[in-house]
């Protein structure tokens, strides 16, 4: 469970979140500039809130009162950006193993082979990121984050740079990650269909506030689960 109760103030921008996120995959919808990326940054440890607390499964990641701010590299929270952000000087193999080698042997949950198989990136292993297509880069970025065995996976509009065909392909992989690897996810996007496909519950974020979408809201009531089942 991710317990959020914090404030980020940057100039005119004000982000205030006070929610407990319980579901395996939580979707957050909203327009660009609404504070979605800042929220992920605060959870990942890249953005330091002015005040409040952030807890993941009972572990305090941030607490302004007791001056606790666990740095990003000690949080074990994976983050996948819109455009992959692979390390351009390393091969796909070494990109995949970058975080994997940073964790103790006993804490490694997945093997390189299993992740490579799941994401179907075997033929790419010796290539450099710049020679990969957008979809391939994004799959490698996902694989790299999974191999790091994160306690939580943050996805910051991971599909927005891809065309429709690739979106569906990666969404299918994400669903498999959710089902087979059981890594909780916080999925940020402005595409309703992605959230409908993947998320167990959905929030919207507008001008720095998070609002839970109820079953009566258009996104939730469009019968998307049924449609999925029948497809």
């Amino acid at each position: 469970m991710l317990e959020l109760d914090f404030v980020v103030q940057r100039g005119d921008f004000h982000l205030q979140v006070q929610h407990n996120l319980l579901h395996p995959v939580t979707g957050i919808l909203g327009p660009s500039g609404g504070g979605k990326s800042t929220l992920l940054g605060a959870v990942a440890g890249l953005v330091k809130p002015q005040q409040g607390t952030i807890k993941l499964d009972g572990r305090v990641l941030f607490d302004s009162r007791s001056r606790i701010h666990i740095p990003a590299h000690q949080r074990r929270i994976g983050l996948v950006f819109q455009d992959g952000q692979l390390l351009p000087h390393l091969s796909v193999r070494h990109n995949l193993l970058y975080g994997y080698h940073n964790i103790p042997l006993a804490e490694r949950r997945f093997t390189l082979e299993s992740v490579v198989d799941l994401l179907e990136i075997g033929p790419l292993l010796e290539r450099k990121p710049r020679s990969l297509s957008g979809g391939e880069q994004q799959r490698v970025a996902l694989g790299r984050a999974i191999l790091y065995a994160p306690r939580l996976l943050l996805l910051d509009e991971p599909l927005s740079a891809l065309d429709e065909r690739l979106k569906h392909q990666i969404l299918a992989f994400l669903l498999r990650i959710k089902d087979e690897f059981a890594i909780p996810m916080l999925y940020v996007t402005h595409a309703v269909s992605e959230v409908q496909f993947l998320a167990d519950c959905c929030y919207t974020m507008e001008s720095g506030r998070l609002v839970l979408l109820q079953d009566a809201d258009p996104v939730m009531s469009s019968g998307w689960r049924q449609r999925l089942v029948t497809q």
């Binding site: 440890g45 929270i77 950006f81 952000q85 692979l86 390390l87 940073n102 970025a141 984050a145 943050l154």
Partner: peptide
């Protein structure tokens, strides 16, 4: 963001 990605993969500054 490449550096941020590395940090979220467990690398100290």
């Amino acid at each position: 963001r490449i550096e941020s990605a590395a940090r979220t993969l467990g690398s100290s500054p």
